[in-house]
Every structure is written in structure tokens, then in C-alpha cells.
Design a protein around this nucleic acid. Structure first.
Lengths: 204, 204, 204, 204
DNA sequence: CTGTAACCGAGACGGTACGTCCGGTCTTCCA
DNA sequence: TGGAAGACCGGACGTACCGTCTCGGTTACAG
């Protein structure tokens, strides 16, 4: 049986240095140029220390982002809730569009996706640790809308999130079209038509 | 000025051998293990012959798929059109779900996406050569539905395709949820609610 | 000032385990594969325990052999003395040839020499602790021969030993020729011609 | 079957750079600090180019010395022959003693021996390419002495060389005693007693 | 029909990074 | 407080590929 390292003796100093170095290198040079060797050198750490604690380069990158979330535990992940679902969603979607246009976000997110696509284990980690909590916050807003009668009561919230976000995400990831505020609005409009309150109810 | 190779003298024998080798290696060993050296060796070709005609590994992979389409020029890309949009779309979407479940499709498509995410030039090629024609066929079916009054007349067809396909594609790519026939149906239902014929018209 | 470990508190259990492990590993895998890590692991000892008590890998190896000698303190290092120098030397030299042919002797002695060649401090230790006593026993036999008039009275015994042994040792170490009983005899013959009783004296 | 590199396509430029770098690094930093990486870096060469053409570090070092000999093909390996064997040998042996005292000779020769001791294949190469020719030159001088009646006619010249050189070489290699001109003379005296013209013939 | 210029296969080359191993130091915890 | 355990930084190992280059050989167009 292979010997497992003892997490109790792990150097937190090295861990933070590695994650920080990984984040810096990704933004500086892009994911293609990211190497374990460079991370170790930048972090002032032996390569073995990386291999001891992470199974792959992708795992390091994922952890580098998880560490950010941990840093600010009470992240402002909660979506705005003014009572007007359409307005709130348009604000959020336009913000997302703006975020994707920021070059500083490009490299790391593309890096993460490159790894996730080809590594199921990493994808599971990603869903559980990063995407999950964010999606939960979004669903919470939708549940609030359901209570307010602004969203079909029986709507599948997973599908709802996908309807809203997947088109936007795909355009960005595959660069298959322009990301504009108008596009964000159009997505919200379509989403509300598909998932809005039952029409029968309103005709009464 | 750098000398350009003369396409007229290009060896079609080598070209086919390279594309075939690329396809075989991707399915056999996955994209991560794919190397130019391996392609050249398998194809019985000098490395320079690859570098002469393709700018990157991703370009070879893309070409390997384009070549498949060229093989059957009059691909049955046209969607079924029985006159019943909902039924036709559900057939198509269920077929797509089934296709994505086929392990033989996994490796190559993931490979292609890995490259496209990080290479804008390749993404453009992909859109133009592979995705474009397919999307056009899909749009043609939607236009037919518009003429039949089964789809909003002013609907943005690009957005329409994204609403239909992006959720499915994202689930598959990021493994963020199960791909079932029911899911396909639900997507069509949501799509038709969002993009179906204008309600105002029917209430008058 | 660096702190020196206190020899009084040294664990004899660890010391023996380390020396035994070193000996075993050398015979099993040869000197090239010998590492401090492997010795520590085999001995069930922390690496620091080795570094605390020995300055170099070579020192451990040397000690591993010294420990053997200590084990049997009254080693039968004394050479046979039947009164017939030529016969006695031939017996001894033939035995040495046989010893060198034993594969079990190969690895350790070559290991020791590898270290000694490049480490003067170790060489001094080797001369003092291992080679010295053995050479002294050999010289004692030669002194006996001098007393018996079978060896030149004024012979330099250090040179004498080198004449006898260095050719044999060099052949073995550098594999520059075959080691046979005949070769052993020839060496003794040459040695006795060079160092035997003065001819002038006998002719008078 | 493993593929062998094609010697015809070997870059002589790289070969020379590697051998020169190896020689320089050995003298500068000693053999212990010599690494393939350092040789490659100093030579401005990829590591693979070294691994392609040499099976081990020792083989590179050996070649580095062989290349020196090739450079001056008609090396002045021939020993002086004034007709007086004793005088000639004492000159040669004193010169050898002086040579061994030169620190510039130390590192490389010890390096070579370290490798040879543990690598039979390398030892064979060494005997054939380096030691062999030198020994042949020495034997030639001894044959001349035999013709002149200054050496026993039936003497085994291999053994003769060992009697002369092995003691000296062993003292130097193992640092087991001082190397002085007097020692050189004593060796020649002993050698001539052992191997000089037959005494019986002269007494008749 | 014959240069001659290009592509072609092969593969050596200078490099980068891989993932592993070990050297030597430092730290933690046990006896 | 010595020793076991082992994490740590550093750095060499030998391998796999990268993208460039040079080498003959073999087309195939031009004179």
C-alpha cells in the first residue's frame, strides 16, 4: 500500500505560497504556459511538495480558486432581491457579461475549464466546491421569486439556471458570438417567458 | 519573407494518413496523450510535414473532423420536418442526448473543445467550418416553423439555438448533471414557451 | 558553536541496525544504488540519526566494515608461518585470489574504494582502522622471514607489501587482467627475487 | 528492437562541445559535482544529445580523455631509450611521481577510476582505448631491454608493468603513503632485481 | 528527357517540462 | 533530550515532446 502524507504536518506556508504563485502565473502568462516547475520556482518550494499534496496541475488550479473563496467566507454571493425578478436578473446578467469581458477573468476561468473538461474527478470537485455554492445562491433568489408568484411554482431550478446561464457561458467559452448588455436582457426575457408564472393563472 | 509551401504539390496521401492517425490516437488514448510525434509516427510521416501544413495541434484535430464531413458531402444535416415542431425537436434533442452518451464521441469532441477554449483563431475556424453549417441547418428548420406559425416571427434564431442546445452542451461538457431523454423533452418545452407563437396574437 | 551530540547517549540499537542495513544493501544492490534514505528506511531509523553520527555515506560504509572486525576481535589476521616463506606466501596469495573471485566480496570492497578515492579523510580512516592492522600482521610474517634469513635484512616492508599486493589488487580493481593461482605464484616468485636474501652473502 | 541513432548524422560540433565541457567541469568542480545537466548546459546542448550517444556519465568522461589522445595522434608515448634501462626507468618513474603530484591531474583521473571500478563495460573500454596503447609503449621499451640483455628474456611483460606501476598507482589512489623520487627509485631497483638478467647465466 | 526545385521520410538538434529520487535540514512528537 | 518519522527546499535524474533544422530520395514541372 502506498504511504499517504500526513496532513497534520502540512506546511500552511508552502500551501499558500503555491496557490498564490499558481494564481499569479495564470494571470500573467496564461494557462498554456503554466507549469508545475514554474509554480514551484515562484513559490520557493520543492516540486515534490506540490506532487505530495495535489494529484494534478488542474487540482492545484482548482484549489487556487477555492482558496480565494475561503478567504472571504461570507462572500457576497447572494443575488440582489428588490422584489422585481426581471430587473434583478437583468442587473445580474449584465454584470456577468461585464465580468466576462474583463481580461483578468479570462485566463483563470479558461484554465479551469480546460482541466475540467478532460478530468471527471476534477469536474466533480469543481461542481461541489465552487459551482455548487454559487448555484445555490442563485436558486435561492429564484425560490424567493416563486414565493412572490413571479416564477412558475413547479419550475425545475437546475434547468432554470441552465436556461439563463448556459447560453451566455457557451458564447463566452467558445467565442461563438458577442456578449452585450442587450444579449443579457434578451436572455432574461426568454427565461421569464419560459419559466414565468403560469399564464392560465393570470387570465383568471 | 517566409516561404509558403505550394498547396498544389501537397501529398494527399500524407494528409489523409495524418488526419486518420490523429482521429485514431484521440479515440485510443484520449486527448491528453496526443502528441505531434505520435501522429507523425503513426501516419508514417515526417514531423515537418505536419508543421508545414498545420499551425498547431488543434488545427490538425479540427481538420481531422472536417475531413469526416467532407467525406460525406451531402451530410444528412437537415433536421426532420414533419410539420410538428415540438415532436421534431424532441426527436432531435433525444438523439443528441444519445449521441453524447456514446463513448466514441467523447474523446474527440472534448479534445476539440479543449483546444478551442484557449485558441481564438481555432475557435473562429471551428465556428466557420464545423458549427456554422450545422447551425444553419438547424435554423432552417426553425424558419420553417416560423412560416408555419409555430415559432415567434421575430425570434432571434441564434439565441433560439443557444436556448435549446447550450444547457445540454454545458451539462455534458462540465458533467454538471445527468443527460436523459426527459431532460431533452424539458428543454424543448421550455424553449417553446420562450420562443413559441406570440400569446397576444392568440388572445385577440 | 555547533552542538555536538553526546556519544554516551547514543543508541547502540540504532547504530547496529544502520551498519547492518548498509552492509545488506551494498551486497544486494551494489554501491551505485546505495542511498542514505534506503539505509535509514531499511534500518527503521530517521535520516537525522545517520547524519548526526556520520559525516558522509562513505563513513557509514567504512564503519559497517570496521564493525565486522570488532565483532571478532581476535581475528585470525595472523599469516601462517611454517618456516617456509615461499610456500606460506603462495598459500596466502592464492587465498587472496580466491577471495577476490567471490562475488560476495565484490560489491562492498568496490564500494569502499569508490568512496576512498575521492575522500582523503575517509582514506586516512581506512588506512588507520582497516588496512593498518591487516598490513601489520603481514609485516610481522615478513619480519619473521627476515629473522630466518629468507628475506633481505634491510628490506622496506611497506614497499615489500606493495610489491606483493598492489599488482594483484590493481588487476582486480581495474579488471585489467585475469586473477589465477598461477598469477599469485608468479607474484610471489618475483617478490622473492626482488626482496630475497642478498645473493652476495650466499655465494661467499 | 530498440532504434539506434545514426552515427553518420552525428553533430561533431556538439560532440566536441560536450567533451570539452566535461573536461572543464571536472577540473573546476571535481568529479562529485559533475552532472549531466551541467555538462549539457555548459556545452549549450540538449541533455538528450548526451543520452543519445553515451550510455553513462562515466562513458562521457572516458571519451573526454580519449578525445585528448586523438587530438595529438603521434603522442610522445614512447619511453626514452638511452640503452641504460635503470636510468631510463628512474627518469620515467620520477616523472610519473611528479605528474601525480600535479593537482590538475588529480580530479580527472580519480573521476575516471571512480567510474571504472563500478562499471565493467567502462573498464574494458578504458583498457582497450587508453591504458592499452600506453602499456604497449612501455612494453616496447622493456622488449628493447630484453634484446639488450638487461631484462630476463622470458619475463612476463604484463606482470613486469604491474610490478613497476601498481605500487605507485595504489599509493596515489588510496593515499596510502608518500610519493617521492626516492620511492620511484626504490621501485625501479626492486623491479630490476625481480626481472633483471638471469643470475645463473652470469655466475657460470 | 533532363535538370532542378519542392515535398517527403527520417530523425538529430537545443530546449522545456515532466514526474521521481535523493541529499541534507528542520520540525514534531514519543519515550 | 535522543531518536523515529517524515515534510521541506533544492536540484539532478532520465524521458517525452516541442518546434527547427538538415539530410538523401523521390516526384513533377520546366526547359
Amino acid at each position: 500500500m502506498a504511504k499517504q502524507p500526513d496532513p497534520a504536518r502540512r506546511s500552511q506556508r508552502s500551501r499558500q505560497a503555491i496557490l498564490t504563485a499558481a494564481r499569479e502565473l495564470i494571470t500573467e502568462m496564461g494557462y498554456a504556459k503554466l507549469s508545475i516547475e514554474a509554480i514551484a520556482a515562484r513559490a520557493g518550494v520543492g516540486k515534490q511538495t506540490i506532487y505530495r499534496w495535489w494529484p494534478s496541475k488542474g487540482a492545484v488550479v482548482l484549489d487556487a480558486f477555492l482558496a480565494l473563496s475561503e478567504a472571504g467566507p461570507e462572500q457576497d454571493m447572494a443575488l440582489p432581491d428588490t422584489g422585481d425578478l426581471e430587473a434583478d436578473l437583468k442587473v445580474v446578467m449584465r454584470a456577468t457579461v461585464a465580468e466576462f469581458a474583463d481580461p483578468a477573468f479570462e485566463a483563470p476561468i479558461r484554465a479551469l475549464n480546460t482541466e475540467i473538461i478532460n478530468d471527471p474527478a476534477l469536474a466533480a470537485q469543481y461542481q461541489e466546491k465552487l459551482a455548487g455554492p454559487v448555484d445555490e445562491a442563485k436558486k435561492e433568489r429564484l425560490r424567493s421569486a416563486q414565493r412572490a408568484g413571479q416564477l412558475a411554482a413547479g419550475a425545475d431550478l437546475d434547468l432554470a439556471l441552465e436556461l439563463l446561464y448556459a447560453p451566455l457561458y457557451q458564447r463566452w467559452l467558445l467565442r461563438s458570438g458577442p456578449l452585450t448588455p442587450q444579449y443579457a436582457d434578451a436572455l432574461v426575457d426568454a427565461f421569464l417567458k419560459a419559466m414565468g408564472p403560469d399564464i392560465d393563472a393570470s387570465t383568471h
